[in-house]
Design a protein around this nucleic acid. Sequence first.
DNA 1: TCACTAGGTCCTGTCAAAAGG
DNA 2: CCCTTTTGACAGGACCTAGTG
Lengths: 340, 340
Amino acid sequence: MAKSVANLSDVATLAKVSKSTVSRVLNNKLGKGFSVTPEVKERILKVIEELNYKPNLIAQDLTKQRTRMISVLGGAHALSDLGNIYQTVLNNITNILDSAPGGFDVIVDMSHHPDGSSEIPAWRIDGAIVLARCSDETFEELEQRNVPYVVVNGTGRAKGASVVPDDIQGMKLAVEHLVKLGHKRIAYASAPLGHLIGHSSIEERHQTYLAEIKKLGLAVLDGHDKLFTSAEDYLKSVIYQNKATGIIAYGHMNALNIMQAAHFLGISIPQRLSLIAFCDKGATDIMSPGLTFMDLQSKQMGEIAANLLLDMIKETDCERKQVKIQEQLVFRDTTSSPEN
Amino acid sequence: MAKSVANLSDVATLAKVSKSTVSRVLNNKLGKGFSVTPEVKERILKVIEELNYKPNLIAQDLTKQRTRMISVLGGAHALSDLGNIYQTVLNNITNILDSAPGGFDVIVDMSHHPDGSSEIPAWRIDGAIVLARCSDETFEELEQRNVPYVVVNGTGRAKGASVVPDDIQGMKLAVEHLVKLGHKRIAYASAPLGHLIGHSSIEERHQTYLAEIKKLGLAVLDGHDKLFTSAEDYLKSVIYQNKATGIIAYGHMNALNIMQAAHFLGISIPQRLSLIAFCDKGATDIMSPGLTFMDLQSKQMGEIAANLLLDMIKETDCERKQVKIQEQLVFRDTTSSPEN
DNA sequence: TCACTAGGTCCTGTCAAAAGG
DNA sequence: CCCTTTTGACAGGACCTAGTG
């Protein structure tokens, strides 16, 4: 099935014109000192139709030095965790880049590049979005090749912009929410094992919990500094021994586990225990009752990241911005005043 | 920042050899009637190192008529539903294609192509994996361009291969499981709203439920033919009015909702109600107690799909295979003999 | 045979220039 | 000489066949 696809020359030959004329007609360069007789235009379009000719994108990319492809890196975690924020982020990034003038193809690279070997085809893409993080080599590559990139929920190198949620402000709000409801004994359920190690959210939420609780003269309860493993053990320690009435959970998976364990142990939510977690709306859909949560604003994060990237692609000498997004409390059914 | 990247000519000039020689050294064509003095080779490699030269993939693609890119279509649902099987499918596809001789880049196209306009860069990829389905135009394009493709959990057109779970066999097994445990009143919870409309699984599971139940002389219970919306309403109807002791659920989301509603209504699982659903292991991780499920074998589906695709890429005249995968019962904690 | 190179090829986009009136 | 319509040559970067000394 040799060369089943027609190319520009084929069209030109059949339409009895030169390749340039065909090219011009296709790229509508009519205003710019170029014109065609309607007759010729018609003829060319007819041949194109007949041959079902489509310009070869690879050749086009080569001449234009531009691929209109944007790569999303770190797809591994974007797809692994259930209900994490990256799905929302990704959807919103895609929406915007898609409908940008000219249109960009958003591509999620799923290949598990062996650690240490950067294999992003950096010279094949016009820009990149990094979800939380990528390998050092990859960052190196992006920087060297001057590929515009934005890190979402994480930080990059010198030339990269970033969009992160303001976890310090968020944790303050979470603590404040519970305190206002009347809670005095507030615990923190830290990030579960397997979560991105070293991610800034882990440190920031934890430290801010400690700082706020101390500032308010409340008791720091056990368990905040342990990796979250068994929700049942955690509840036994925190509720039975430490008499907590409220828990702030690192993420939605903690919250889910806690809710299930609470059911099992007969601890009613929110009567006996108030629960709040950091996540986005999407994650709470799998839970009932409706979880009170600190909204990480993943939709906004995606939108802002996409627009930053577009700016950077448009003007190469754009300043590298670091955007911090305010988190927002969504008050639902898992928090209330303590029983007593 | 004009042309910050070096190309083959630059290397050739600096190493004082011709472009061909550089190309050959890079592509290790030494056996095939080509040779270099170690000295020259050394020199070239040094220059490459200095300039940090990397071949331009686009140009490479153009000459080789091959991109080593594989596109995954239908990424929209792969990322939307929580815990669906496509995540597992995708991971396994990626693993295999990644480590195939030569290595393929797996790319998930996330762009929401406006309905009706096929915009897959078919002439830019070496093959495609379709998750469940894609637009008619896209199928048309794949067929016309002779792009090898495999549909996972769905069927394609003439030239496409496919891998699907055997839902008929699976449903038979599910019914058999409950019957063996002693259940006589078995209900079916159909696909929820928003699920891929017209997907063969919907029809096959439903019809097989009806056929099997009738064959065994049992009662077909209400609700099997309605779209699944409120789990609470469903349980009230099926358990209270229809006295069901077992439910076979279309998918993990139904099962999750049913479990939560059962908790709420005080219906204990598995004592009062046995529950089984079609899904894969990944989805059950968010549930407790451990769900008994019909394993759709998503890992296998991915592996088989990837290997089929590799075969099709290797030999274009490969027959279009339609693989059906046997489902497997995983017996856990949500099914048991009925109380009475 | 060894060690290497010139120049055509893949395909499209663009510019200077030429043809036709 | 001007205006409109059309064209040939070349760039873009790597690969490969045929060929030189």
